[in-house]
Simulated scan of single mutants.
Amino acid sequence: MHNGVLGEKMAKTEPKMEFWGLEVPTEYPITEHVTYSEKGKELTAENREAWIEFSRGIKATAYRFIAFKELILQMETKWAALELYPDHRYLFEQERDLLSLFVFGVSAIESTYYSLYVLATQANPTALEFGDIKGRKWGSDPRQIKKQIKSALGNVSIIAAIRSIERSANWRDWNQYRNQMFHSVASPRTHRLNVSSNPPKPNILDYGPTWCTPALLKNSWQFQEYLPWLSSKIARLMAEGSKIEKNA
């Protein structure tokens, strides 16, 4: 079995919900992952270092998605056990987990971008030189990836998939919250005055706005909607990447 991909046998049978001994969320696009892995083996067949880098990229995609789902479940479990309003310990743990969630979500996408970049260098090494380390660091930057894909492949379908991510509210919010939480804590949870003897339970996420981020208010089912969105974006990137062919 190659490092970083599912084995030959799995590629020829029904996808199993397991990677490297880890249980994979049902939302993860395993079928697209397997097909994309096969394309990676094909395009990097003559360059072992490129194969290793491609494998590291898609393995990171799966790892980050698994961690993303596990964090959502952990946060929901803590929220379900919350009787009324949170104490400082609860807020500390939720803010810590929330930062990790946004980091993992962004990383799952950017790891897929990196694997696409590696394949582009193998499909058209004249346009993108894999051995140029400085160029690789710059060219695989998410802010540069569309330009590099276009120069190497002229592939508008991959670029369209990337643009659909960049224009989405989730991508904008995840990056904004991640960047803000890198240097300051999230705004304190909003507390609302309630004179009822049976006040409603607060939403799972209820953070006020800051100078650089909007308010973050979500209940449990809205929180779960992050998963199919992330899965669909990764699936599309992998599906488009599986169509890459070597330049003649």
Results as ranks from 00 to 15, higher is better:
Tyr63Gly: 10
Asp141Met: 02
Tyr117His: 05
Lys16Phe: 15
Met238Gln: 15
Ala108Pro: 00
Glu110Tyr: 06
Asn219Leu: 00
Leu6Asp: 07
Gln148His: 08
Glu8Gly: 03
Gln94Phe: 04
Val185Thr: 11
Ala11Lys: 09
Ser100Arg: 09
Glu32Met: 08
Asn179Leu: 07
Glu166Gln: 06
His88Ile: 02
His183Ser: 10
Gln148Arg: 09
Lys201Arg: 09
Ala152Lys: 04
Phe130Cys: 04
Pro15Met: 15
Ser157Trp: 09
Arg136Ala: 12
Gly105Gln: 06
Pro86Cys: 11
Lys246Ser: 03
Ala239Asp: 15
Lys243Cys: 04
Glu129Ala: 13
Tyr63Pro: 00
Leu227Ser: 06
Phe19Thr: 02
Glu129Ser: 13
Glu166Ser: 03
Met1Ala: 14
Glu14Ser: 15
Ser140Ile: 05
Met181Lys: 07
Asn155Ile: 02
Thr121Lys: 04
Glu240Val: 00
Lys41Ala: 05
Arg236Asp: 08
Leu119Ile: 04
Ser196Met: 05
Gln176His: 09
Lys233Met: 15
Ala248Ile: 11
Gln122Lys: 06
Trp221His: 06
Pro29Asn: 04
Ile30Pro: 00
Phe92Gln: 14
Pro25Arg: 03
Thr121Asn: 02
His191Trp: 12
Cys212Phe: 12
Val106Ser: 08
Ile204Ser: 02
Lys69Phe: 07
Ala127Ser: 12
Glu225Thr: 06
Leu99Glu: 09
Leu237Tyr: 07
Trp51Gly: 02
Trp138Leu: 04
Leu91Val: 05
Leu101Tyr: 05
Ala120Ile: 05
Arg163Gly: 05
Leu98Gly: 05
Gly7Thr: 10
Ser184Thr: 09
Ile30Cys: 01
Thr61Val: 13
Ile162Phe: 00
Glu240Phe: 07
Met10Ala: 15
Asn203His: 11
Gly21Cys: 00
Asn219Glu: 12
Glu166Tyr: 02
Lys146Thr: 04
Trp171Gly: 00
Ser55Ala: 15
Arg236Tyr: 06
Gly208Ala: 13
Asn194Met: 09
Glu225Ile: 01
Gly208His: 08
Val34Glu: 12
Ser164Trp: 08
Glu129Lys: 15
Pro125Ala: 09
Thr213Ser: 10
Thr210Trp: 10
Thr44Trp: 11
Tyr28Cys: 02
Asn179Met: 04
Met10Cys: 14
Ser115Trp: 03
Arg172Cys: 03
